[in-house]
Design a protein around this nucleic acid. Structure first.
Length: 212
DNA sequence: TATAGGATTCTCT
DNA sequence: GAGAATCCTATAC
């Protein structure tokens, strides 16, 4: 018998730790997105760590800007950015305030509100693809820049909360190179996932884009 | 099934 | 003006 996931929100202290401790510990946790149409819940299966100013792959590497200012704030908040002209991706800020570390949420399994997620992800061929990839995850949950800076530890009044869920034992977590990160930052094996989970996104090395 | 290339707009240099 | 923590579709095999 598998114990039901713990529905207690994660505390600020959970996120106020080194990003490489927080990232693997997020696997199996439950993200709750409350929308006017109803809640959507997602069990995290894949994340990536970004270590602020020390990490060439991080948006915060070149210092604080208007775009990344949330990353420099209090841990436990949500950093949402817009990329490639059409997609949003979301991070959870962690580590001490000012360090600008964060965990990119790359993939997960929709465990509640799949109908609402399907309406947003019409191109998904099956439910495993609803949140298979960081931009797909944000799309399925209806996350955009309006949620940038949301406190994910605030409890049921917040549009976005992370619950204790069912943490994945450390010896069952796999790690490897981060996806799509160019330059020296790409070498860090800071991508963490639950092995053999069908919702984990395929690894894609960084490919430079050409303009026409 | 694998791979290549286009889409589209924000952000920073 | 260049590049971006990506995704989707068409094409080739």
């Amino acid at each position: 018998m598998i114990a039901a996931p713990d529905r207690t929100p994660l505390s600020r202290d959970f996120f106020d730790r080194p990003v490489l401790d927080v990232a693997p510990d997020l696997l199996g946790r439950v993200l709750v997105r409350r929308t006017p149409d109803g809640p959507i819940e997602l069990r995290l299966t894949e994340v990536e760590a970004y270590d602020g100013a020390n990490d060439p792959g991080s948006h915060a590497y070149r210092g604080r800007t208007a775009r990344n200012s949330v990353m420099f704030g209090q841990p436990g908040h949500v950093y949402v950015y817009f990329t490639y002209g059409m997609w949003h991706c979301m991070n959870l800020v962690c580590g001490e305030e000012g360090r600008a570390s964060g965990v990119l949420l790359r993939a997960g399994e929709i465990t509640e509100g799949a109908e609402l997620a399907r309406e947003r992800r019409l191109s998904a061929r099956n439910d495993k693809e609803l949140a298979k990839g960081p931009a797909r995850l944000a799309t399925a949950l209806g996350v955009d820049r309006s949620l940038n800076g949301t406190d994910a530890c605030a409890g049921p009044d917040s549009p976005l909360t992370v619950l204790q869920g069912t943490p994945t034992p450390a010896d069952q977590v796999r790690n490897g190179p981060r996806t799509g990160v160019s330059g020296p930052g790409g070498v860090h094996p800071w991508r963490f996932w639950i092995p053999n989970d069908p919702t984990v996104s395929p690894y894609r090395p960084h490919t430079p884009r050409r303009r026409t």
